[in-house]
Nucleic acid binder design. Sequence first.
DNA 1: TTTTGCTTGTTAATTAATTCACAGCTATAA
DNA 2: TTATAGCTGTGAATTAATTAACAAGCAAAA
Lengths: 207, 207
Amino acid sequence: MKNLPDKTVERLCQYRRSLNNQLATGKTHIFSHEIANLLHITSVQVRRDIMLIGHSGTLRKGYDIKEMVKLIGKIIDTKEGQRIAVIGMGNIGKAFIHYLYEKRSKLKVVASFDVNPDKIDKTYADVYCYHFGRLKEIIQKEDIKIGIITTPPMVAPEVCENLVTAGIKGILNFTPKPLSVPDDVYLEEYDMITSLEKVAFFVKHNE
Amino acid sequence: MKNLPDKTVERLCQYRRSLNNQLATGKTHIFSHEIANLLHITSVQVRRDIMLIGHSGTLRKGYDIKEMVKLIGKIIDTKEGQRIAVIGMGNIGKAFIHYLYEKRSKLKVVASFDVNPDKIDKTYADVYCYHFGRLKEIIQKEDIKIGIITTPPMVAPEVCENLVTAGIKGILNFTPKPLSVPDDVYLEEYDMITSLEKVAFFVKHNE
DNA sequence: TTTTGCTTGTTAATTAATTCACAGCTATAA
DNA sequence: TTATAGCTGTGAATTAATTAACAAGCAAAA
């Protein structure tokens, strides 16, 4: 279960979300092509992903939704849940905290950091904001393993280094500045502007 | 130049950003392996992308940074710039507006929409916020071709439909709700929570 | 009971993306 | 001038991701 392809992991997360929505409507079983339609992908892809996680559907009845949600949870979540820090309490940082506050999942933001005195020592959606200088201390005390970087790009490398030495094992970098980390730390990067520029490119070239 | 692979387009955007940074340091030429290092990819990849856009470097001197920036601009930007609307003035919506306000690029947010009376008829970073009911009117009047959806997921499909009928040609969906659009509209989707769950997965399976 | 139609699970084929490997060139050093 | 070292550009090979194709099974209809 360890060696699932990147893309499959992404889709599993999406399956779970959609399946939960379906559960809420009272459905108990679902066909691969129904899942596919929800996510606008092909049913083969869905079946293949399900195959990769070693699950089986019932012929002619489809997949048991509850079972699948549970299984995906087993694959993605840890039993105790994972503890997260947000570094940089700008709009994006707040968005994360807000979102994870609403959906209670196994992912929990337990601390945030900033250097702006207006933000420090305040609480946003139950998450306390510490001064960045206390990063290492708090991360170790709170047993935080995942960090989300939502600072201005310029300071991202410094933040990253601090996270790594504090013992973080996964980083989600929302900064346009590419970071590098040791092999034992997982790094995921996303840049909003690149996404937007991509859209702009295809709009330009479609007419 | 029309048929660049998706991934190449993304990287070109990143090259441009990095190259601009390099320009600011006074450099005039750069080697493929230097670009590669900045972005943590391989130099072959860089050279191949540059090949795909039909550019050539100078042997032993590398690529002329200014020229490359200009060329990438020609590929990605339109001459007049592209006009953008943000629908949903929550944290993410604000983040976009703020970001595009600072970097003045060819991408310009010229209108935002919400349904919250506290936000309507106010201005954020020079962007006026209209009531969602006026979407079509304003989009057509302002000749907006790209929409960024940053509303609550529930209303995203409705927003999407409205954007399409208003004549939008590209949509960036920041909602976890998958959307569908006609063939002549380009759709890019991103879900922050999926990214985070992916990090969580790999952290879990790395130890 | 037999047939029909529909769905899963999976192997094989295809397509997309990346990396290898190296020919060809050129500035610099010898 | 003649090596030498280093970088570009690109076909060929490899790897990753997706899609096609279909055997196998089962529920419902005939």
